[in-house]
């Protein structure tokens, strides 16, 4: 089994700049330094179409394009549809989780979260590291 590529590009999407910074720092602690940022779904989608990423970590509640819409766009795009996609959101109702799962989310993290949860979910998505 091939090891985890710590240099793979990761796109973090959140409309709160502090959250982008926190996730970037936590990823850095875990060894992932190749992190890009986007502040809403439409900006993220453009970045995903312009560059090959290994993982998306996205918030849900953003405008004009939400994280769920971004996920649906990603899954509808032949070149992106197998991209691992983790939703990190305060939307914790079961119907949200169901909707995200039906749209093809790879994993789901509830805010507020801790570093251990982020590592566990990353491991589940990209493999042990």
């Amino acid at each position: 089994m091939a090891g985890v590529d710590f240099n793979m590009p990761i796109l973090v999407v959140d409309d709160y700049k502090t959250m982008l910074r926190i996730i970037r720092n936590l990823l850095k602690q875990l060894g992932f330094n190749n992190v890009d940022e986007a502040t809403d779904g439409s900006v993220a989608l453009q970045k995903l179409r312009d560059k090959k990423y290994g993982l998306v970590i996205s918030d849900w509640n953003m405008e004009p394009m939400s994280g769920l819409q971004l996920l649906k766009e990603v899954r509808a795009d032949q070149r992106l549809n197998d991209l691992p996609f983790i939703m990190v959101t305060a939307e914790s109702k079961s119907e949200n989780v169901v909707a995200a799962k039906e749209a093809g989310v790879t994993n789901y993290i509830i805010k507020p979260f801790n570093a251990a949860t982020l590592k566990t979910k990353l491991t589940a998505v990209i493999g042990q590291f």
């Binding site: 959140d14 502090t18 926190i22 602690q29 805010k111 507020p112 801790n114």
Partner: peptide
């Protein structure tokens, strides 16, 4: 140091939650 710093990062989640 890293452990303490991680705890601060985690605590700073509050800004996103309270903002929402």
């Amino acid at each position: 140091i890293t452990g303490a710093v991680t705890q601060v990062y985690e605590a700073c989640n509050f800004q996103d939650i309270t903002g929402q």
